[in-house]
Every structure is written in C-alpha cells, then in structure tokens.
Amino acid sequence: MKTVFERPQALTEVPMHYCPGCTHGIIHRLVGEAIDSLGILGDTIGVASVGCSVFAYDYFNCDMQQAAHGRAPAVATGIKRVLPEKMVFTYQGDGDLASIGMAEIVHAAARGENITVVFVNNAIYGMTSGQMAPTSLIGQKTATSPRGRTVEEMGYPIKMCELLATLEGPSYLARVSSHDARHVLQAGKAIKKAFEMQQHNKGFAMVEVLSTCNVNWGLSPVNALKWLEENMIPQYPLGVFRDVTAKEGN
C-alpha cells in the first residue's frame, strides 16, 4: 500500500480550533498542499487576518505575520516590496476583506501587487458570533439582521471577484467552493494557480473560496454544505474572472 493522502508539510501539527465541520480547515489544507507542491515553504511568508482564521499563524509551517483587521493586503505589500523574491500570501475572511479592509484589497489589486490572496467567504462574521457581513445574502438571518437582510436597510451583497475584475491590476481572480470533494479539488487547483501567478511575477492573484459557518448559520456541518450550494452559489457564481495566462495561452 502506498500513501496517497496525508497531512501537508506546510501545516503544523497543531490541532485547529475551528468548529467541527467548518470548511476553514479544508481551505488551510489546500493552501498547505499548494505550498508543498510548489516547494516554496521556506520562501513563503503568510499574513493572517482578524477573524476565525486569526490563529492561522499557528497552523502554517512558514513565517507568518498577524495583521490588524482588514489590513492584511497592506501588511503583505509592506513585506513583498522589501522581499520581492519571497512568496507572500494573505488569508482573509469576508468581513475582513470586503468590509473593513475594502480599501486595502482594492488598492493592492489595482497596484497589481504581486501577492496571493486567499479570500474565505462564509457570508457572515464568524468570529464575533454571527453578525451580518457585506457578503450576507438577501434574506439571510444573522445576529444583526434577525429578520433577514433587506435591500432597503442594507443594500446588496458585495461580489468581490466581479468588483476586482473591473481593475487592470489583477492577474488571476477565481471563485471556487468547498461544498463537495469535486469542488474542493478544483479549489485546490485554483489556489495553486494563484501562487504560481506570484511565482511568475504576474501580479495580484485572488481566490475567493465559498465556505461554511455552520455554527452561526444554525445548521449541521453536512446541511451547511447543502445550504452553501443551494443559496450561495446562485448569488456568487463560480468561475474564473481573470486569468492573464489564458490570453497568453497556446
């Protein structure tokens, strides 16, 4: 028998603190697998954001910085500009990236900053116990939209891939999902590609991964995957929104 699946080297042995069934853990592993397969562990610096993934600095086996809420793209810019040969990635939630950190992500993208962004969209503020996020769906009940999000009060969910695709800076923008194995495998490929873009100096690359927060959604882990598939994907269509290498294609 040959081992065909094991823990990536890029993850530490520290048990993750995420709630049972939270797909943050899957996305961590995908990042770890991408780092392993490109052989860049010793050259990678990660930036953890503020959100449930704040402890990411304990889980990745590379140098890590922990950024203030929303500021990870600025911190990553600071690192990348002084260490242009190193690989720099951020790992950010939707509250972090699409609300408080909107300016930082838009400008990093517009500058074509040569970093990789892993954006975990679970349509809610997980860490602070389930408040409405800018990505929460119309009608979604959260701690701060107890009767469901309404357009009249709170406007529309923000589609980050589509928004950033209006800029020339990004080299790669993709939205993927974590709701079943097939999609997780696709997500892994997209994350790897986003690191390759940086390796080849193509500039800003972001993968938005639709993710669950079963605890704050009030669902079982298995039902949360279904809810994601049935409700989030129609609002947040999967696909590649920018790929500069596709144009160069053969």
Partner: peptide, 11 residues
C-alpha cells in the same frame, strides 16, 4: 479531501 481537520491518511 472533505475532512476539515486533516484527520485521515489514505493508502
């Protein structure tokens, strides 16, 4: 692939 906590090793 679906395990969030990297519990499983497959051979």
């Amino acid at each position: 692939v679906m395990c969030p906590d990297v519990v499983l090793t497959v051979r």
